[in-house]
Structure formats: C-alpha cells, structure tokens
Design a protein around this nucleic acid. Structure first.
Length: 333
DNA sequence: TTCCGACAGTGGGGTCGCAAT
DNA sequence: ATTGCGACCCCACTATCGGAA
C-alpha cells in the first residue's frame, strides 16, 4: 500500500509563454523545437521517495496545495510506475468519453475532503497523471540537462500504467503537431526548445504555448460596474446572441481585453442606451444581480477557448466593437 | 535603446463547502 | 431550503518597472 504524504516540493514549475505560429517557426532552425500536446488539467509536481522502506508519493499543485489525498489512484499508480526516487512534472487530467482531457470533468474531483466521497468520485471520474518532464532522479538534479536528455531519462524512468502516462513528444514540423491537436480536440501545442534547460519557477520563451482560438460575435445586453481601479466604469459586459426571438440568449460575461480608452468609450455609449428590463430570455439571478441593462444595439467580437456545458464562453476576452454587424444577425457560430 | 519577464490588479467559468439568510 | 461568498482550479489581459540583451 502506498501512502500519500505531505512532502514539501522544492520546485516551482516552469511556465510557457503564450505565442503564435510565427514565434515558433519564424526564428532559427525548425529542428530546434519539439512539440507536445497541451493538456487541460491541473499542473502538478510529483515526488516519489522511499520512506521507512515504503514508496511515498507527493503531488503538489501550482499554489502548493497537497493534491495527493484527492487522487489516490494516481498516488498508487505513480508508486508502481517509478522505482527509486524522482521529482516529476506533469498534468492531472480526466478524460471524457471520447478520450479527451476535460477540465469540466476534472472539476468534479476538486475540493473533495471526505475520503468516502473521494472513493466514489474515483469510480465515477477516474483521473490520470500525464508526465512530461523529470527534474531529479535518485537525488541527482537534472534541470540543467537539455530537454532532449531529460525526455530520454523520463521515458526510461517511467513504466506506464492505467493512471500514469508519458504522452509522446513530436520532433519535426509544427504544422503536423498543430493539426493533430486540432483533430484530437485539444487545447493546443506546447513547443519546447530541444536544447533548453528546465527554468525552475520561470516563464520563458524556450517553452511557447500556441492555443486554438475561437471567435464569436456577441450583442451587449448589459454591464456590471467595475471595482477598485475600474470603479466608475465598466467591470464586465453581459453578452448574448440572437435566437430568432425578440429576446436574446445569454452566453456569459467578458471582463478583460479592454484598454482604458475602450472602457471609457463603452461606458459612455452604454449609459446612453440604458433601459430598465433585461433583454435576455434566460439570464441567471446571480449574473443579473448588479446588472445595468441596455438596449441590445452594440455588437462586439470576443475570443474564447471553448463553450462550456452550460453554453457559456470559457476564457473570454474582448476584441472590439463590430459596427458593421446588425444585432439581429448575431448567432452562435 | 528595446525588449523580456515579473508583479499587481482587474476581469471570466465552474465546483465544492460553509455561513448567512 | 436558498443564497451568497470564498477557496481552488483553470485562465486573459493591461499597465508598470527593472534589468538583460
């Protein structure tokens, strides 16, 4: 039986810089890069140790919370997958019915405290640990080795099982990896410089994440006032799309992507088209609480990661007004 | 000089646990 | 019983600043 201990992790995860295709292929030799899929889950530093003759496993999230107790199947799997001591970097994921990592499913595993509750959740939504780096092996620090050598060490070190995987890294062309990630319905691609060291706790351009982006036109049906620095202007916009009906279908809020000029401009325009009632057919009470309603006349464009199960924008950001669009023509794409 | 990376501070969706109503 | 709120997870973005390139 493996135990999950509250082992303190001494490493902060290395982070990738957000970029686009040109940031990767636009400079230098394309062979300098390796490509991995971007997994949508919980970034986790894993430590395997020997303690009193037993294998002890620690899992730590990015803000230093002990994740071991919440994922007993991974603790057990990691104990079987690795012999000896190691510090490994990876992502806890929960796969959907089509085999894609689903953050929505994984959320059902978060914040559970009661062991019986966790036991039931393991059966309902099993989680896996996808490993993509090794920082230390049997006490030997590996962070200064180049990526390619750490990859070799990782693959030799880990014996995969149900709960622990080492997903492949692709050499060669970005476009191939990009298309694969798209076909598989994944978030995007992480490009890693093959010669690069593991920069503990830092965000550098030796790792570049390139994400699939969606765009959607939306009608502003209201807004919420800002707080702190944004007091006196717009906090977020309440967005909708036409359903062919007189009232709009609510698709969520957007509160980032504005410059200070954008905020002033929007605030000005919105104040002039104020009305008393909600233009949405279906907005939840919580979202409507401190809303200021407006006549649905202004159209804008947002970028976002994906639609949530509830038909809301996930990770939305404002891209600007679309004066060329008629509100009644704005549909969900 | 320019640019990179770190920080702080704003905002989002979703889940769970717990206190207030 | 319902509602509200914070803690965790994921995150985008703006604005600023110091120091590296």
């Amino acid at each position: 039986m493996r135990v999950s201990t509250n082992l303190r992790t001494t490493y902060e995860a290395m982070l990738a810089t957000l970029g686009d295709r040109d940031d990767v292929i636009g400079q230098g030799d394309p062979d300098e890069w390796a490509f991995e899929m971007k997994w949508d889950g919980i970034r986790t530093m894993a430590r395997v140790e020997e303690q009193d003759g037993r294998t002890a496993v620690g899992l730590t999230s990015r803000n230093h919370k002990d994740q071991g107790p919440g994922y007993p199947e991974i603790v057990d799997g990691l104990g079987r997958a690795v012999s000896g001591k190691a510090v490994l970097d990876g992502e806890i994921v929960a796969l959907d019915t089509r085999g894609r990592p689903s953050f929505a499913r994984l959320q059902q595993r978060m914040n559970l405290a009661d062991p019986r509750e966790i036991g039931r959740a393991v059966k309902r939504v099993p989680a896996q640990l996808f490993l993509f780096d090794v920082l230390e092996q049997d006490g030997e620090p590996l962070v200064d080795l180049p990526y390619t050598e750490r990859r070799e060490r990782l693959q030799a070190l880990v014996t995969e099982n149900d709960a622990v995987k080492v997903p492949p890294a692709f050499e060669g062309d970005f476009d191939g990896a990009w298309e694969s990630s798209k076909d598989l319905g994944l978030e995007g691609v992480i490009a890693k410089r093959r010669s690069s060291r593991y920069a503990v706790g830092r965000r550098t351009r030796t790792w570049i994440k390139v994400k699939h982006v969606r765009t959607q036109e939306a009608v502003i049906g209201g807004w919420r006032p800002g707080r702190g620095r944004r007091a006196g202007t717009v906090g977020s916009l309440l967005l909708g799309v036409s359903d062919g009906d007189s009232r709009m279908r609510y698709i969520g809020r957007v509160g980032t992507g504005f410059s200070e000029r954008d905020l002033d401009d929007l605030h000005d325009r919105l104040e002039r088209i104020t009305r008393k009632t909600s233009p949405f057919a279906d907005i939840p009470r919580a979202d409507a609480r401190d809303a200021h309603w407006v006549t649905p006349r202004l159209v804008g464009e947002v970028e976002f990661a994906e639609w949530t199960n509830d038909g809301r924008l996930r990770q939305p950001r404002w891209r600007g007004r679309r004066e060329d669009k008629d509100p009644s023509q704005v549909r969900r794409e």
